[in-house]
Design a protein around this nucleic acid. Structure first.
Lengths: 99, 99
DNA sequence: CAGGATCCATGCTGATACTG
DNA sequence: CAGTATCAGCATGGATCCTG
């Protein structure tokens, strides 16, 4: 469901009702390849977390946003983030958040 | 941190302060191989999520439990579970929880 | 009982090139 | 712009056998 290196990173960019185009996400996450980006977006689309909106134009325009259910994930991920942050209080190890 | 197929499953068995022996975990999670079980336990030990307690006996006895920080993960995972459960209310798709 | 060691299959990942 | 196709590399996962 949420496995895959990029899912969470993508979600963080989509939270708060953010609507992003494919190229927006590419720019926001420079480390990801197009293949991985589209792959993980498609998976989340199938899982009902992300909604894909195609605007039939030239040039093409495709937007991604969270579904209602996807938005509901927000508090859970916040809890995970604060858990990860809690570690730094206890150990002061400088590695940033990989959940 | 929490990647790997078995981490969450292991954690669920350890929550609530549960103390389990290696063989207990093997029995509780029949699908996991010994190699995977020990590997993921070791990783979580290194990450400070799980504590490993060796009793020097014959036969050997090794117990696993959560660290303080590991216990702190509980509410976050609960949030994830209720999120997953929310799906069934909305879609009624019978697939059980894979997060 | 609680692992360690080894070998092997799979799959995820990424770089690159191409398309409607 | 928003993808698709292809190929290669490495990590992950698993089965089996062995040990203190």
């Amino acid at each position: 469901m949420l496995e895959g290196r990029w899912k969470l990173i993508i979600l963080f960019h989509l939270f708060g009702g953010n609507v992003m185009r494919f190229s927006d996400l590419e720019r926001a996450i420079p480390a990801v390849s197009q293949k991985m980006l589209i792959q993980q977006l498609r998976q989340m689309e199938n899982d009902g977390i992300v909604r894909r909106i195609v605007h039939h134009q030239v040039p093409p325009k495709v937007e991604y946003r969270l579904t209602e259910w996807g938005q509901a994930l927000c508090p859970a991920l916040d809890a995970l983030l604060s858990w990860a942050a809690l570690r730094e209080e206890m150990t002061a190890s400088g590695t940033s958040s990989d959940i």
